[in-house]
Computed example of a mutant assay.
Amino acid sequence: MMRGAVLLALLLMPMPANAADAVAAKNPAFQVQAQMRDTGYVLGDRLEQRIDIRVPPGTRLIAESLPRLGRVNNWLELRELRVEPRRGGYTLQLGYQMFGAVESAMQLAVPPFTLRFDQAAHTPTPTTVTIAAQPFYQSPVLPASLGDADRVPRATLPPVRIAGTRWPLAALASLIASLLLALYLAWAYDRLPWSPGKPGPLTLLLRDLRSRRALAPDAATYRALLRQLHAALNRSAGQTLYLDNLPLLFAQAPHLQPLQAEFDSLFQHSRRVFYGAAGDADGNGDWPTSRVLDLCRRARDCERGLS
């Protein structure tokens, strides 16, 4: 009860009216203002302190006088320090980490430190400004009524046992799923040396074109490519196709329906190649070799159900 009454009295003690009141400095030309929350801290908390310093014109902060990062005392460590020059002065942002614990509410203080400023235009010796200690209250983490047995460190808990059988099974299942997916993709894109089922005419066409490393850029090779594509389409439709009866292809092979406009354009171009002007026979018109090969690949994908 006595400790509880002391804790309540400490928490109800009147605090400074403004934590940002000016901190006294030896030189009145330097105005120092420190801001820091002064209550609500426990073990492990960070203390954020902001210090605004107004200096005379032409004054420079000597960096060597800034506090060093690291242990300040046995319960406080400076973790962060940022210096922000501004018009007419400097702003210091300091971040402290607390490591000490208390058994009851206690008033502590961030230690003071001294800064040095160079005023070469006014005085040859540096001017010192002392940042006063900043008091704050730290609260206990554990209740005050602890017995001797509660203060003895407890043994570390043994590690939790993890079942080791399910992970190999999961890895095996993932491997099997990956192999099945790889086999499906290899089949879908006709990359297997042997393919289950009978491949379609457009798949066979792509195999033949893929076996030839490159097509010669001449009119005879271009015409041969068009003849091969027409032959594959004829086998897909089950009869010879012309521009006039092209809809029969999509009736027999509805999977090629998304490419109807492309095939219609290709058949018109093919008629000009074989029966029209010679200028379209070398693959340099609207249907170059690359576009014909791309249409062959897209038709193969439709034939194998990939689109």
Rank of each mutant, 00 (worst) to 15 (best):
F136H: 05
A188T: 01
A149D: 14
S104T: 11
A253Y: 02
P111R: 00
A232C: 10
T240L: 08
A224N: 08
D38M: 01
Q93M: 08
P159K: 13
T125Q: 15
W194L: 15
A19G: 08
D118A: 10
R300F: 09
V273I: 04
P258N: 03
E84F: 02
D118L: 08
E77W: 13
F267G: 03
P85W: 07
E303L: 08
P193W: 03
Y242G: 12
L81V: 06
D21Y: 00
A63I: 09
L142M: 11
P158Q: 10
T130S: 11
L181E: 08
Q93S: 11
P124L: 03
L293W: 03
D150S: 10
P124S: 04
L11V: 00
A251Q: 15
A219V: 07
P124N: 01
A109L: 06
D21K: 00
G305T: 11
A182T: 14
L115C: 08
P143Q: 13
A29S: 04
S195I: 11
L175D: 05
N284R: 15
S290A: 15
P199C: 07
R291S: 14
R210Q: 13
V83N: 11
A9I: 01
Q228A: 13
P67S: 09
A220P: 05
L76P: 02
L266A: 03
Y222E: 04
M1S: 11
R60I: 04
G276A: 12
L229Y: 04
R79F: 09
Q107E: 12
R161G: 15
V72F: 12
R82N: 09
A101G: 14
L206E: 12
A63R: 14
S178F: 14
L61H: 07
